[in-house]
Design a protein around this nucleic acid. Structure first.
Length: 501
RNA sequence: GGUCCUGUGGCCGAGUGGCUAGGCAGAGCUCUGCAAAAGCUUCUACAGCGGUUCGAAUCCGCUCGGGACCUCCA
């Protein structure tokens, strides 16, 4: 079997994946900032790296998957009045950061479970690691790569670059930036005058009086800079150097670049060996993001409650939609594309369920060509996944198996066309990839069997009516069920199956 | 302005120089009491112009278009 190759942003090429410690993989993925609700764009990395996580485990690795929750920093709820922060108000009336954080963390966890994403091994919070962050900043200062100004601490990018560029670790190595170029183009920011250099970034920020989240530090009351939490927590749980660092492409610079600089100073190593970045989801060609105001939150997706949504889209539809594209390509959002995904998933899922029910018994296949084709298609699953997690190609192979499965059901294809051995391989491989690795699941809620019992009863009644050629009754049953979203299908063998939309 | 990515058929998308994914939509047929589903068949592609090559969607150059990052952002 082929070996796993991943595209490493750091080297800009596909590389064979080799973990640092045999049999173990450490993976860090940048998680959400819980000051607002997650949107479609956020769903992408979490689904992408859920697949990576699942696939690595399938390959037999023991994976420690760390995904942080950013709950510290400059906190305000989106759209909330600034006066909430004013200290004159009663405590209960004021914005309580932890309440906000709790609310959106809960929502986020709920959305992740809707998507059937496995929980990470460790989900550390920034607020829970202030001590580690301060410790790291102290080390950086002690080593001379950071300086304090008015209670804030900044990372000295130029000094870092001067010292580490000769070692082959220049600042900008991940995003392909050259420091000299950046010094001229960086725009003005708050407190820019405090920095020695425009490219310097904050490790610790002094908290102005009205700032609601604040901690004591050697430099006064303040809060950690944007990048330090990931360095502190990845080091703590994965070590000085670990295997995979993941996140959205928009984090490559400056976030991951700064992470590399901080960690390299403290640990003397480039923190992660493989940097994996997923591309963006776009709306009408524009990235879905805060800056563009074109976000569609996950609850809006699930309910269809948004002006540009023509209908609600189920979590599995969205998951499938995302899997249909390679993670490093942009994915354009649109109702037509989502509807296509919805129908495609339904077709795939129904064929998959069928495949698990049908049993074939032929000792030898009567159609050697078809048998070989099926085996070849099944083998591509692993091959394509090993090629930088190409879920799109795996799905294409699966769809090529759908006519075979349906053909056997409809008896267009003889029951002995495939050998029992091939069929069992198909059942096993489909189960493994559809459910275990792609994490797809039936949209049918509950499954307590009551609905099935009721539908089966109606099917029996309808069959009686049909036998008596009482088509008025039989069509009424079928039509009424259809309006409820239950579709009856008369099979060739005289039986009736149904599917729920 | 700097760095980088990208332009595939009605829509979404995969594509390692030759064997032209896949899904959705459209058309026809089969099956069916009628439907639906399913099956079979079918249609439409590689932004433009040059170049390299026996051969290019795939490599190179130019033009035009789109986008990302450089500021919070998945």
């Amino acid at each position: 079997m082929s070996t796993l190759k991943v595209y490493n942003s750091l080297t800009r090429q596909k590389e064979t994946f080799e973990p640092l410690v045999n049999g173990h993989v450490g993976m860090y993925v940048c998680g959400p900032t819980v000051s607002g609700e997650s949107h479609m764009g956020h769903a992408r990395p979490f689904i992408t790296f859920d697949i990576v996580y699942r696939y690595l485990m399938h390959l037999g690795y023991k994976v420690r998957y760390v995904r942080n929750i950013t709950d510290a920093g400059h906190f305000e709820e989106e759209g909330r009045e600034a006066e909430d922060k004013i200290s004159k108000k009663a405590t209960i009336e004021k914005l309580e950061p932890m309440e906000l954080v709790q609310k959106y963390t809960n929502l986020y966890h709920w959305a992740m479970s809707q998507f059937n994403n496995l929980p990470p091994s460790i989900e550390p919070t920034a607020t829970g690691h202030i001590v580690e962050q301060i410790g790291m900043i102290e080390t950086i200062i002690a080593d001379g790569y950071a300086y304090e100004v008015n209670g804030s601490v900044y990372f000295d990018v130029e000094k870092y670059n001067t010292d580490f560029a000769p070692k082959g670790q220049p600042y900008g190595m991940l995003s392909g930036r050259v420091l000299e170029d950046m010094l001229e183009t960086t725009r003005d920011l708050d407190n820019q005058e405090e920095k020695r250099n425009k490219a310097d970034f904050a490790l610790w920020k002094n908290a102005p009086p009205e700032h609601i989240m604040r901690w004591k530090s050697p430099w006064g009351e303040g809060f950690p800079g944007w990048h330090i939490e990931c360095s502190a927590m990845s080091t703590k749980y994965l070590g000085d150097q670990f295997d995979i660092h993941g996140g959205g492409m928009d984090l490559q610079f400056p976030h991951h670049e700064c992470e590399i600089a901080q960690s390299t100073v403290c640990n003397h190593k480039t923190p992660a060996r493989y940097w994996l970045h997923n591309n963006m989801i776009t709306v009408n060609g524009k990235k879905m993001g805060k800056s563009y105001g074109n976000q569609i939150s996950l609850t809006q997706m699930f309910t269809g409650n948004h002006p540009i949504l023509e209908q609600a889209y189920a979590p599995m539809t969205i998951r499938f939609f995302i899997l249909q594209t390679h993670y490093r390509s942009t994915l354009d959002f649109g109702n037509e594309a989502l509807k296509a995904a919805e129908k495609g998933l339904k077709r795939l899922w129904e064929a998959y369920e069928l495949s698990q029910k049908i049993e074939l018994t032929a000792v030898q296949s009567a159609d050697a060509a078809l048998d070989a084709t099926v085996r070849k298609l099944l083998a591509t699953f692993d091959e394509y996944m090993n090629d930088d997690f190409n879920t799109a190609k795996v799905l294409a192979s699966m769809f090529e198996l759908v006519p075979v499965i349906n053909g056997i059901k409809d008896k267009h294809i003889a029951a002995d066309a495939l050998s029992a051995e091939t069929w069992q391989l198909l059942q096993k491989q489909l189960k493994l990839f559809v459910e275990d690795i792609f994490g797809l699941k039936s949209e049918l809620a509950g499954g307590d069997g009551k609905l099935d019992g009721v539908v089966q009863l109606l099917i029996t009644i309808r069959l009686d009516a049909k036998t008596k050629k009482d088509y008025v009754t039989s069509d009424k049953i079928r039509n009424e069920l259809a309006t409820l979203g239950i579709q009856l299908k008369d099979e060739r063998d005289g039986g009736t199956s149904y599917s729920v939309n």
